[in-house]
Design a protein around this nucleic acid. Structure first.
Lengths: 113, 113
DNA sequence: TTAGGTACTGTCAAAAATGTAAGTAATGCG
DNA sequence: CGCATTACTTACATTTTTGACAGTACCTAA
């Protein structure tokens, strides 16, 4: 939970206000977000598949990161009214528009690490 | 200070090992790194100029972020043997190669926030 | 009635990142 | 000597992120 008025939060907010880079980095910068986004570029996936595709992530962290991606409008959560439940995650148009950037980040990383 | 064997650190390391995106994001993802890198794309700057160009940053954080950028090979620290001291920071070739990516991140951010 | 499958939630703890405030080293100049 | 200048350090506190682990709700089928 963020503390609305800490210097930390205020600095973060202001950077994201007047720096496009910081905004973008905040959107894709969580520990598990690149892994999630990457998988979703290949298409819609359900929760359990995503979870099994990223073995190190705990369910708690996975859900947290999914919720943030959803809140930022990068992914869409699709719930089917079935039992047992089925939930799928899919990139939105906004999320898809990130794909070339993610590719650049990936390429630069492969080349330079 | 990082704890060498926490799950947190191990996860981070492994992600950066097998995911170029995570490696790149770790390199440019500190709170003040985008601001620093951005200023340096316009050329060499001395410490005090950088500090005054980013009013919210504390000297401690500025130095920490500069040290990380240096350790990751994105910037070079140039010390002149003078009194009072003069230190300049400059992008390395590796750092310069990030410029188009930073521009992409910036453009996407401006368009989508 | 109990077990099973799916997608979570809750609580607590550890670790990491960021911020605050004060202090330091070196030296030339008056 | 005492002061100014620059680029930092250091010690500590707060805030944020991440992780461990147990528990839940729902219906269906045996």
């Amino acid at each position: 939970m963020r503390k609305e008025n800490s210097t930390n939060t205020l600095n973060k907010r202001q950077m994201e206000m007047d720096c496009g880079m910081s905004y973008t980095l905040a959107a894709i910068g969580g520990r598990w977000k690149p892994a999630i986004l990457w998988r979703l570029t290949h298409g819609k996936l359900r929760y359990s598949v995503l979870r099994d595709a990223i073995p190190q992530v705990t369910e708690r962290m996975l859900v947290l990161q999914l919720r943030e991606l959803e809140k930022d409008g990068l992914i869409k959560r699709i719930v089917y009214a079935e039992v047992p439940p089925r939930v799928e995650y899919e990139l939105t148009a906004k999320g898809k528009s990130l794909t070339p950037i993610l590719q650049n980040l990936s390429d630069w990383g492969e080349k330079n690490r």
